[in-house]
């Protein structure tokens, strides 16, 4: 059975799913991630699904479970890189992935995790480039 590699980069575990996963591979990833979070003590997980051309209810549920398990283990999960057609299909399928944070790419996902410092709420600490002045 194939296995999805989990990479540790600083305080983040990065997973890039590059294969069409059979269900057992997805379940294995869920277990591997939980173990690696505990072993490494990281506080963030990024799952890159930009190579996936579909996300069905099984994979969707697996992502949701990974996010929940990570949270219990004091790590925040961000799913990044979802293709537009996948997003449209997921919503029509009835899966809105509640409880999963998403970002458009790995870079934005890392930024999202970086802003987590105090609590789970993302904070925008950069000054707003657009200043609206009242006339």
């Amino acid at each position: 059975m194939e296995r999805v590699p989990v990479l540790k980069i600083g305080d983040i575990l990065l997973v890039s799913i590059q294969i069409d996963m059979e269900d057992q591979v997805a379940l294995q990833l869920q277990e591997d991630l939980a173990e690696r979070i505990v072993a490494t003590g990281v506080h963030g997980v990024i799952i890159d699904i930009s190579a996936l051309d579909i996300v069905d209810s099984f994979v969707g549920r697996t992502l949701a479970t990974i996010a929940s398990v990570s949270r219990v283990l004091d790590a925040e999960t961000v799913v990044v890189g979802m293709r537009p057609a996948v997003a449209i299909t997921l919503v029509e399928l009835g899966l809105s992935l509640p409880g999963i944070r998403t970002a458009l790419n790995v870079e934005l996902g890392i930024a999202m995790l970086g802003s987590r410092e105090d609590d789970g709420e993302p904070e925008d600490d950069e000054p707003d480039p657009v200043v609206v002045t009242e006339s």
Binding site: D23, D53, D56, S57
Partner: peptide, 17 residues
Amino acid sequence: SLVDQTKLVTAASELAR
């Protein structure tokens, strides 16, 4: 179309499972 391909493959995945 790409969106329809995605929808069909997703439906097929659900039903095959």
